[in-house]
Computed example of a mutant assay.
Amino acid sequence: MEDLRHGRATRERKFAVCTGGAHLQPADRAELLAVLAGDTDEMIATRAGEAILSAPLESFVEAIKRENALPALFAYASRHLADKPGISDALVENKNCPAELLVHVLRHLSDVATQTLVEDLDRVSASPALAAALEHSPSLTPEQKNQLRELHGPAHPIDEAALADAAAAAEPDAERRQTLIQRIAKMTVAQRVQYAIKGGSDARRTLIRDANKVVQRAVLQSPRLTDQEVEAFAAMSSLTDEVLRLIAGNRAFRKNYVVVRHLINNPKTPLDVTLHMLPMLNPQDLKRLTTNKNVPETLRTTAAKLQRTRAEQKK
């Protein structure tokens, strides 16, 4: 199988795949046919192309979605199958599909897949061509289009004083802090997004306070982000209300009770957000909230009412 996947199999075995005599699972055969369609042997390539025409489309969708899908499959599907139902969406769904291939399939995407892609800051920040092409999608909001322009538009001078303040809170070591500041100060928005997603905790703690909203959101998309970091962010009154709203709106983050408690007690968290999460507090934290002078009076009053309601229900 691996010999076939990487083009090292004999001619006879390649023909067997094309004719259906290799006894393969449909998704495996679909992937191999895409590989063989680019074979240096013209007859093999022709036979593979002909076999693809009669292969079940669902098998290609399944193959594309697999984590170990081959680049040759992505390339073939984006060039020759993008207009077929489910193919383009499957390419977006697989994070291993190169961004440059997605440029060719944008017009075939469902609205859901388009939204998924535009929110994938790792991909759109890494590919100016993809971001530029996405700008023309009719399913994007004006705010999303502005976000894409910000990513790869003209660089604006970074606020070095604000950067220094953020770095001071993120990195206690003076030498490492200076290195961090110098590195970030030279970056474009797209580079800061990439650093927010792939950098270390010091980068995330600094960039969560970046003046650019896209960079802030990228921090929260980082696969390296820890529960402890999110808990710390939720308690930071130096963050914008928009960042706190994003944290509150993330279902995975809300599963962490400490995050919920910190958000509710953070005076910068929007009132509508804290009121919505209020019933999630346990009795002890609810009681403390009623005397927390840092939060809005409306929140304290509502907390007191909830406390009384709970007490009456126990009677």
Rank of each mutant, 00 (worst) to 15 (best):
D39Y: 05
R5Y: 11
Q194T: 09
H104R: 14
R310Y: 04
N96L: 07
S59E: 03
Q191R: 13
L275W: 10
G20T: 12
A34Q: 06
T10A: 15
T179N: 07
L130M: 10
K255W: 02
T240W: 07
L163E: 04
E312A: 15
V103A: 06
A22F: 09
N294Q: 07
L163H: 02
F60M: 10
A131W: 01
D89I: 09
D227V: 10
L281H: 01
P267Y: 12
D159W: 05
N282M: 08
I247C: 00
A168H: 09
N250E: 08
K145Y: 03
N266Q: 12
G38I: 11
P85Q: 10
R261V: 14
A30I: 03
Q216G: 01
E2I: 15
P283K: 04
N250Q: 07
A72T: 08
D285Q: 13
R107P: 08
H276R: 09
T290E: 02
E229T: 10
V230Y: 03
T116M: 14
E171H: 02
D39G: 05
H104M: 10
L275I: 07
H152V: 10
R177F: 06
A126E: 01
D83Q: 13
A303R: 00
I87W: 07
V189K: 01
P85N: 15
A234K: 01
A129R: 13
F74T: 01
G153L: 09
E312S: 12
E175M: 10
F74P: 00
S54T: 15
R176Q: 11
A248K: 03
T240V: 08
T188H: 06
L306Q: 04
K84Q: 15
E12M: 10
D122T: 10
R13M: 15
L263F: 04
A174H: 07
N96V: 06
A113D: 08
L239C: 06
D83M: 10
T116R: 15
S139Q: 11
N265Y: 08
A55V: 05
I184G: 01
D210A: 11
A311W: 06
L207G: 03
F253C: 09
Q313S: 11
H276T: 14
